[in-house]
Design a protein around this nucleic acid. Structure first.
Length: 481
RNA sequence: GGCUGCGUAGCAAAACGGUUAUGCAGUGGCCUGCAAAGCCAUCUACGGCGGUUCGACUCCGCCCGCAGCCUCCA
């Protein structure tokens, strides 16, 4: 029974989709004017994992994640570069997709863009005006009249009085109320614009998500997610817009992931303390980053530090090492050829597997508790290591289970040897052939009982980041550190 | 100032009103020519002070410390 923490109620709730068996989920994606940083990677990985698990639990999921490809920052950056904003956004959309693929993030089912949703946006603003919730301000911009929406502040736990009391240096005389926000922004000369009943302009920041989510998923859908910082004002405004326009409940369940931090401080563009995904990928394999993200609960802060990335690498190495050398059997293959003893052992193993699967499921059902789910993978790895040499059939079953549970988290889908033998970056300094040659030379030295030479050859590789492991059958395997 | 949330062993990170989390690191042992990997064993905990309870890391109160939101931000 899946339970999810709902920001709206500040409680874990039993998840019940509006339509049995079907789930609609919308996640606020990127504003594409720069490369994704690790904070963005967290959103992508977290909700990718949520999507995978919802599907794994048997639901038919429609996962929508938008791209905001028009806003002030985009225009500003395009002007800086002296290029058309469409070229800028196209470039960073492509970069974002590259980062996602690297991190094992599956594409959402629908990826709407703001610039392709202008008609829906305009239509929604018109409805808001008709409903008396929006007005044309003194400067021609269209604003949302926050005070007209009764539940404003409910999601973020704020009320209008407190917000108004807060120190706002917003002296925008075009607005009736300083808290009112822009729905449609009139274009200045040279700015990209679209025609509308209020003149040429562009959508405000929040309206595109209201338009795109309701268009893709209907007026009322199950899950809406994003980073913590979007709670206010972005998601609050989305609720005001969508519910104000449709008159229906907008979203049942709001999910917000915690921040990535550096030295106990939020990673953000304004603080300038961020690492882009592609920078980090130069140093660590993508799966290590994914593991690192999943090693803490999605609502907790996640501190970015080399030590932790290195630990994540060691942890992943342990899992892949356990899988190494165990071929994954076709499910159900050749069962008839097994003797009675094997069948009995396998039956017992399967029972044991269902206990592991249950523990994994219980963890994920508890608001996507990935740290506990990961611990189950390590429990499996330990069992696997124990029986690997002695009971091969059991080992196969364990390996299948480990790989399957890993896939729910988007992990352990590589060939173990591929993972273990690859470095963070493709470095051509030491080829596989050269390593194999060195190993061969060492084996010969070993056979001649020339331990000094054998150790020297091993140390030489060690210095270059290659670790040798002698296998009982006389061969030697290796991995890169 | 208002509103959220957090404080667990050397590091990271969970659960749970009474029973091994887990990973990395450490220590001892097994294995190994020696290692590595692996297995077994083992040491480091629950910010402080009170309260509830037979019993609290877990519930309640206060205090201290930290972070986030209240302005663009995943």
């Amino acid at each position: 029974m899946l339970k999810i923490y709902n920001t709206l109620t500040r409680k874990k709730e039993i998840f019940k989709p509006r339509i049995e068996g079907k789930v609609g989920m919308y996640v606020c994606g990127m504003t594409v004017y720069d490369y994704c940083h690790i904070g963005h990677a967290r959103v992508m990985v977290v909700f990718d994992t949520v999507a995978r698990y919802i599907r794994d639990s048997g639901y038919e999921l429609t996962y929508v994640r938008n791209i905001t490809d028009i806003d002030d920052k985009i225009i500003h950056r395009a002007n800086e570069n002296g290029e058309d904003f469409n070229l800028l956004t196209a470039r960073f959309i492509e970069a974002m997709h590259e980062d996602e693929r690297a991190l094992g993030v599956l594409p959402p089912d629908i990826e709407p863009k703001a610039t392709q949703s202008i008609d829906d946006i305009v239509a929604m603003i018109e409805t808001l005006i008709i409903n008396g919730l929006a007005y044309v301000g003194g400067n021609g911009d269209v604003f949302y009249a926050v005070a007209k929406f009764k539940n404003y502040g409910r999601l973020s736990g704020k009320n209008l009085e407190d917000l108004q009391a807060g120190e706002r240096v917003d002296v925008d005389l075009a607005k009736r109320n300083p808290l009112d926000f822009v729905l449609w922004k009139m274009a200045k000369p040279e700015e990209p614009s679209w025609e509308s009943p209020w003149g040429a302009g562009r959508p405000g920041w929040h309206i595109e998500c209201s338009a795109m989510s309701t268009c893709c998923l209907g007026n009322h859908f199950d899950i809406h997610g994003g980073g913590m910082d979007l709670q206010f004002p972005h998601h609050e405004n989305e609720i005001a817009q969508s519910e104000g326009a449709t008159g229906e409940t907008f979203v049942n369940l709001w999910m917000h992931n915690g921040f990535v931090r550096i030295n106990e401080e939020k990673m953000s563009k304004s603080l300038g303390n961020f690492f882009t995904v592609r920078e980090v990928l130069k140093q660590y394999k993508p799966e290590i980053i994914r593991f690192f993200i999943l090693s803490s609960h999605y609502r907790s802060p996640l501190n970015y530090a080399d030590e932790q990335l290195n630990d994540a690498g060691s942890a992943l190495k342990r899992l892949y090492t356990a899988l190494r050398g165990v071929t994954i059997a076709e499910p159900g293959a050749d069962l008839n050829e097994l003797d009675a003893l094997s069948v009995r052992v396998l039956d017992e193993t399967r029972e044991c597997m269902s206990a592991f699967r249950k523990k994994f499921k219980d963890a994920m059902d508890d608001d996507f508790n990935t740290p506990v789910a990961l611990s189950v993978l390590f429990d499996l790895a330990r069992e696997l290591n124990k029986v690997k040499e002695s009971e091969y059939l059991v080992a196969e079953v364990l390996a299948v289970t480990l790989t399957e549970l890993g896939s729910v988290l988007g992990l352990l889908q590589d060939e173990p040897d591929d993972f273990l033998k690859s470095g963070a970056v493709d470095d051509e300094s030491l080829t596989t052939e050269a390593i194999e040659q060195q190993i061969q030379a060492r084996l010969e030295a070993k056979q001649a009982k020339n331990w000094a030479l054998a150790d020297q050859l091993r140390d030489e590789l060690r210095v270059q980041g290659v670790v040798l492991e002698d296998v009982p059958n006389g061969t030697t395997s290796w991995r890169r550190e």
